[in-house]
Simulated assay, not measured.
Amino acid sequence: MSTCTTRKPLLAVTVPQPYAYSVAVRASPVVNLDAVPPGALGAYVAICAGAYDESLTGWMYDCGVWAQCPEDVPTGVVLAVGRVVGVAVGRDVPRESRWYRGTAGLWLDGVVCLPELVPVELGPMGRCSELPEDVRVAVRAGYASVQAEDKARREEYAARAARAMARAPAPTLKDKLLKLCACRMALTPCPLCKAVRCPNPSCPPHTCHQEARP
């Protein structure tokens, strides 16, 4: 299980809805900021859902995503946690993205939604801030539980695959229809009595009932 949130900085970024929801569900890999804080690369970011901004819906539609309705997205809570794998300042970007608005931004990877939303007092929009200690503890616990569930799921899938590979292969149609002798040669029908016999000379000879007629 990853212990990233105890080893790396855990920053908080207030992102307006419905943009925050798009980041949480990995529709958008970028969080746009006014400025990138020092040491952001490699840190973890808690996505805090800010107030609903109706002006973002057209931009999100241009990015290929339908914006959620105001009643469908929460605000004032921590939605998800992601890891910063790239930072952008101006035109210096790690890779192109239509979600980047050109000032500054964080490229995220491995974003996971928290199993329970954590209420939080929102910080300034578009800037990184620190979480209160009680909120940080709850976010870390939620992230750790998701990571533990993912690890258990991967281990279960690996165990199932190992069991499937260890099983004897299912018999083919040929295996079901073909009769074999103890010597593993295929039995063939006798042209006279139609009984099956083994053509291997090392096996006991076939006694044809037709040939035994008086």
Rank of each mutant, 00 (worst) to 15 (best):
P214C: 08
N32Q: 08
L79T: 05
G82L: 07
G64A: 11
Y143L: 15
A43E: 04
A162W: 00
V118W: 02
V111T: 12
T57Q: 11
M165D: 05
L117K: 10
V45I: 13
C48F: 03
N32M: 07
A80K: 05
V36E: 05
A152R: 12
V196I: 08
E156D: 10
A49I: 06
Y143R: 14
Q68D: 15
R136V: 01
S129Y: 08
V31M: 09
G123H: 04
L178A: 12
K174Y: 11
S145I: 07
P70Y: 11
Q147L: 07
P214G: 12
K194G: 02
L122Q: 06
A144D: 14
L33F: 04
G90A: 08
V146S: 03
K176L: 15
V135D: 01
A161F: 00
L33K: 05
P74I: 04
A51S: 14
P132C: 03
A40P: 01
P70S: 10
D175G: 04
R26A: 13
M165G: 00
Y52G: 05
D72V: 10
V65K: 14
H209N: 12
T188V: 15
R83I: 07
L79I: 07
S55H: 13
C181Q: 09
G102A: 03
P9H: 01
G50P: 04
V137Q: 05
Y157C: 06
P119I: 08
L114P: 02
P189C: 07
A186T: 15
A88R: 05
R160P: 00
A43M: 06
P191W: 09
G110Q: 06
G50T: 11
T75H: 09
